[in-house]
Computed example of a mutant assay.
Amino acid sequence: MAKDFYGELQLGILGGGQLGRMLIQEAVNYNVNVHVLDPDKNAPCRKLCNRFECGSLSDFETVYNFGKELDMITIEIEKVNVDALEKLEEEGVVVYPQSRVIRLIQDKGLQKQFFKQNAIPTAAFQLISSRDKLYDTSIALPYIQKLRRDGYDGKGVKKISSVHDIESAFPEPSLVEELVDFEKEIAVIVARNDRGDITTFPLVEMEFNPEANLVEFLISPSTLPLEVQVAAEEIAKKIASDLQIVGLLAVEMFLTRDGQILVNELAPRPHNSGHHTIEGNLTSQFAQHLRAIFNLPLGSTAARSNAVMINLLGEPKYEGLAKYDGVEEVLSREGVFVHLYGKKYTKPFRKMGHVCIINDDRETAIKNARWVQETLKVKA
């Protein structure tokens, strides 16, 4: 940016959850003033920012009024009012990632069309306007149905195994996607600044909670064949370049059993698949996002060590004031770093924190992570 922002820049974050919280923790190092808008009066960011405003992220006037006196706005969630961001851009407020990028990624149908138009490998798909259209698709059963808008953390996704499942399918506009026979789910986080510099973090391997359908266990760096790692990173770079995005972009992918890489979804912000970078890499994803949107040189993404990240999810059958069992026990083990998100209430499978486990020996890191997973529980 042309402005000397150190200690002067007024940065707004749309969303006050854990991603915003960790972004603020890094932004302190740049001495910027951080303003946060979130609909939850108890949002994790509320006590960490210079100014916290409780309000709707989807309301035009709320987002516009929040941002009109700021220098720059970024996001920690895509579900925001893009019309307000476009108006702010027109009036000189810098919005990164750009409003046009957010608008595209808000709609999974537009995402898929973008992949097709730019020769990005992805599963075969068809756009569907209503539930009735599911009875006659070009995609053979079984397939995956995804809502075009507002799905996240496994919500808005259904497997349709037979015609009988269509009765309980989503009625809203959606897309039907070929069921991918994948060997592993992988992800690459890529950063791009306004100069056009692009860097990627090393490929990570992910395990999903089968009940909640969200990332529960992540291993970095990957031990997949080098050609797979390089190919995935090149795909991520191409997407960032084609989008001309400024900021961070998480690219979630499938590695199929026959060795293909297919892009699943994008997230234009810091992402769950990059939390391990706080302890595991020379530059964290949060520092890299700030470097990118401030148009600073991008940091080295080299791994410091083997890192395993575990999401701390609210235990099934527990709902209410959060209680953390086993924190002292896991902290007694070397290389274990606990991050709690400051959420007052827990409920089943709610993301309440994460733990990063590092070790020079990969198998030891994985073994310690499995132990942490069994020892540290979020209850009520």
Rank of each mutant, 00 (worst) to 15 (best):
E207P: 00
V251M: 06
N29K: 00
N264G: 06
D150H: 10
A302C: 02
L37P: 04
Y30K: 05
S174D: 02
L312H: 03
G335E: 12
D107C: 07
K323M: 05
K238L: 03
I366V: 15
N33L: 13
E177N: 10
Q285I: 05
C45I: 12
V330R: 06
L70M: 03
E315A: 02
Q288R: 01
H354N: 11
S161P: 01
F115I: 00
E233Q: 15
N31D: 07
E183V: 09
I219Y: 04
G15D: 06
R269C: 14
K379E: 01
G314N: 07
T122E: 12
F170L: 01
A84E: 06
E211P: 06
M206H: 07
E234P: 04
N306G: 02
L37R: 14
L110I: 13
H276Q: 11
A27H: 11
K237I: 07
N272E: 02
V338P: 08
K351G: 14
E53W: 14
T277C: 02
Y152D: 02
Q18N: 06
D40Y: 03
G7L: 04
K41C: 12
L203M: 12
Y152Q: 02
I310D: 05
G274D: 03
S56Y: 02
P202Q: 13
T283A: 01
I278V: 12
F217P: 00
T137P: 07
V188G: 07
Q244M: 09
S174W: 04
V230H: 14
I75K: 12
L296C: 06
D165I: 11
L376F: 07
L331K: 15
F217G: 06
N42D: 12
L255R: 15
G280L: 14
F254G: 10
V34R: 10
L147S: 05
K159E: 13
L340H: 05
G7F: 10
F349V: 01
E216C: 14
F52P: 02
L290R: 00
G247Q: 03
F286C: 00
S305A: 09
P348I: 04
K79V: 05
E265F: 06
G299S: 00
G342L: 10
F114E: 06
E329V: 11
Q25M: 14
R333K: 12
F52V: 03
E53V: 10
D59Q: 08
E69S: 07
V204L: 13
S332E: 09
I235L: 08
E53T: 15
P225E: 08
A84P: 07
L214G: 09
G320W: 10
N42Q: 11
L376T: 01
E89R: 15
I120A: 13
T364E: 15
T223C: 08
E86R: 10
E172Q: 14
T283V: 01
P171Q: 02
R257N: 15
N368L: 10
K79P: 00
Q260M: 11
L340T: 10
I366W: 08
G320M: 07
F208E: 07
R370Y: 15
G92K: 15
D153L: 14
I310K: 12
A124M: 14
S332P: 00
A124L: 13
E234S: 03
Q285D: 06
V82F: 09
I198K: 11
D360K: 14
